[in-house]
Nucleic acid binder design. Structure first.
Length: 537
DNA sequence: GTAGGGTTAG
């Protein structure tokens, strides 16, 4: 609070006089306004606000705009909005900040309304206005409104800067249909604009156009950290984790820009998908080495990586060290222990979370219920389900019912599982029937298995895996004919079935082995070692 | 006087 202690008395209002002798001398700002710019949190802004009121400085419209801006930078949108409402004739600066604030406050539709009000007021939008409004359009996937903004820019003959250029591309690439417009906008701007190209790369990646993105990335003259980060994140999102990790390694080796937090987070996510523990550990060590603060985001990504790579203890260490834990962090650690079958730890963490004042959401309950299911805790599952509905007012989704069917089914309580399915408020989906089918195969219940199978086929094209499961069930129950029929069906329709995959990591290289196949490059050597009794399958 | 691209739980 050093800033506040040093605050000048209200009489400073008099210093707000422009020096009349020379315009070259910088304008002396009232100290209160200087402090306003230095504020970094809500408390400080509020106190300077009080000073502005007392000193009468707030009566000057530009100062009210500055205060509004400060509330926006500390994300206090409610306060920003009340300042805005008191300005009788807001200028473009005030509008821009309020529009931005509404986007920050997750109300992009309100920022579009405000933009219209700005136009009605007869004000002329500038590049800042366009940047913010286009961002709102992107968030809403409002291509129609975005196009109107674009038309206005062209009609008004505004000279757009790199930010507006990039925002236009971002807006057009928020929908597959207008991706071509994004390409045209990029082509219409002659200079190299890294910002704009980054936008198009992430646009391509969000629409699954991985190759186009990579081509653009490879041809870029000036790649910045965001370019690498967008490409790595895009690979991960499109299920190409090996490529993501490969690109991260390339970045570390050849690129002059160093990875930022988002790059590390995306790369950790790739490690989690691949089970690449050594790589993940390396990234952890690297983050420590460069002195990166383990933020909630980075910490959460680390926990998730350790949990998915089979090292929940390391994940738990990271979790315990995190000074601030949000709902996602709790969710990651709880599902981590759920994956590892440690249901008791999940229950304990759930209680800690509630005691910490964090309110569970539906995803937390999916994790808890799946923990119950894997550990066979039927009564606990019922208890949490009841608690979710009656204490937390969360309406159970089809995923929750799926967990319950799985829980009852695995425990062999198939009659209850069937009863639950019949009482569902919505139409059971393939996850529900699939869970029942799996349980029926486990407990040799042919009647209910048949029922699940029938529903699954009615629900549309079924995966090869489901047919395979059904086939196994019928075969086990002695229904040879049906089993043969299903096997034939899989073969004739060329239905793919996924096989169990296992990964091992040796010297940082991830090797995958598919059950029942021989396709590893070092197969002969491995086979020889096995023959010699050096390794065991 | 204002701006950004990238991220984590089933």
């Amino acid at each position: 609070m050093a800033i506040i202690a040093a605050l000048a008395p209200p009489s400073l209002a008099n210093q707000n006089k422009l020096p009349s002798f020379s315009s070259k001398i910088p304008v002396r700002m009232p100290t209160t306004l200087v402090f306003l710019q230095m504020c970094s949190n809500f408390q400080e802004v509020r106190q300077v606000h009080a000073q502005l009121v007392v000193s009468g400085l707030l009566d000057r419209p530009p100062n009210a705009g500055r205060l509004l801006q400060s509330y926006v930078t500390v994300s206090q949108i409610y306060h920003a909005s009340s300042v805005f409402d008191r300005i009788s004739c807001p200028d473009v600066f005030a509008y821009n900040n309020m529009i931005r604030g509404l986007i920050l406050g997750k109300c992009p539709n309100n920022s579009l309304l405000l933009y219209n009000k700005l136009l009605l007021d007869g004000l002329k939008p500038d590049n800042y206005t366009y940047t913010f409004v286009l961002k709102a359009c992107s968030q809403l996937s409002a291509i129609f409104e975005g196009r109107q903004v674009h038309c206005r820019i062209v009609k008004a003959g505004t000279a757009i800067d790199t930010h507006v250029h990039s925002s236009l591309i971002h807006m057009y690439s928020s929908s597959m249909d207008s991706l071509v417009c994004a390409e045209q906008v990029l082509a219409g701007f002659p200079e190299e604009n890294t910002l704009a190209k980054n936008s198009l790369i992430s646009g391509y990646l969000s629409q699954g156009e991985v190759e186009k993105a990579r081509e653009m990335f490879d041809n870029m003259l000036e790649k910045d950290d965001a370019s690498w980060s967008a490409m790595i994140a895009g690979y991960t999102k499109n299920g190409m984790s090996a490529e993501a990790l490969g690109l991260f390694q390339k970045m570390m080796m050849i690129s002059e820009v160093s990875p930022n937090e988002a790059t590390l987070v995306s790369s950790l996510s790739a490690c989690a998908h691949l089970g690449a523990l050594d790589q993940g550990k390396w990234i952890h060590a690297y983050a420590d080495k460069i002195g990166a603060k383990i933020s909630v985001t980075l910490g959460t990504a680390l926990i998730d990586m350790y949990a998915k790579c089979g090292s929940i203890e390391h994940g738990y260490e990271v979790f315990k060290k995190m000074p601030h834990k949000d709902l996602v962090a709790w969710g990651v650690i709880i599902s981590g222990f759920a994956i590892h079958g440690q249901a008791e730890k999940c229950f304990e963490l759930f209680d800690d979370m509630v005691a910490n004042g964090t309110y569970p959401n539906e995803i937390i309950f999916v994790a808890i219920l799946s923990a119950c299911s894997h550990a066979g805790y039927v009564e606990m599952g019922y208890q949490y389900f009841y608690q979710m509905v009656h204490e937390y007012g969360i309406r159970p989704s089809i995923e929750h019912y799926g967990c319950m069917v799985d829980l009852l089914g695995r425990a062999g309580r198939l009659a209850e599982a069937e009863e639950l399915i019949m009482s569902l408020p919505e139409k059971p989906n393939s996850v529900i029937w699939g869970a029942l089918l799996g349980a029926c195969r486990m407990h040799n219940d042919l009647r209910r298995g048949n029922l699940a199978f029938k529903h699954l086929t009615e629900l549309g094209p079924m995966s090869g895996d489901r047919y395979k499961l059904a086939g196994l069930m019928f075969a086990k129950a002695g229904e040879k004919e049906t089993a043969t029929k299903i096997r034939k069906l899989i073969r004739e329709n060329d239905l793919e079935t996924t096989r169990g995959l296992s990964f091992i990591e040796i010297d940082g290289v991830v090797h995958d082995f598919e059950a029942g196949t021989i396709n590893h490059s070092k197969y002969n050597e491995i086979y020889k070692m096995w023959g010699e009794g050096l390794i065991d399958f």
